[in-house]
């Protein structure tokens, strides 16, 4: 099943973006074939509730898991309700993160790993 990765750039060599809701783009990737597409995040510009808007938006891509740095409580709730696994604390190169995911090195989190509004100002290099 496809996975979504919050990305700092439009390629597998870009870094994982630590932000979820306010992330500019996602990489939607099939871990078997490593085929991917880049999805500009329409949810990021929301005045409020960017995490919710973003989660609803990428859920439509039919994904099974999200790899990101930080995910707040609202987005986590939406993703969980849609049956999407949320894997937080992911950083570094996207290709390497996907390899770690495939080898089962990540476990999904049952709850948000950051508080409300966390990503409102988080930069790309924390």
């Amino acid at each position: 099943m496809n996975i979504a990765i919050s990305a700092s750039g439009p390629s597998l060599d870009a870094q994982v973006n630590p932000r979820f809701g306010r992330c500019e783009q996602f990489i939607i990737l099939d871990p078997e074939t490593m085929q991917f597409k880049v999805l500009a995040n329409t949810g990021q510009s929301a005045g409020g509730g960017a995490g919710i808007a973003t989660a609803q938006y990428i859920v439509k891509e039919g994904i099974g898991a999200v790899l990101t740095g930080n995910c707040g409580p609202n987005a986590h709730q939406v993703l969980s309700a849609a049956g999407v696994k949320v894997i937080t604390g992911v950083s570094g190169n996207i290709r390497e993160a996907v390899e770690l995911y495939k080898s089962g090195n990540y476990s999904s989190s049952d709850q948000a790993n950051v508080g409300d509004h966390f990503g409102m100002s988080k930069g790309s290099n924390r």
Binding site: R22, M120, S121, G123, S124, N125
Partner: peptide, 14 residues
Amino acid sequence: VAQVRQRAKQIAAE
């Protein structure tokens, strides 16, 4: 405010 902070973060990172 979020926009201003985000840009400041970016400048700090770069």
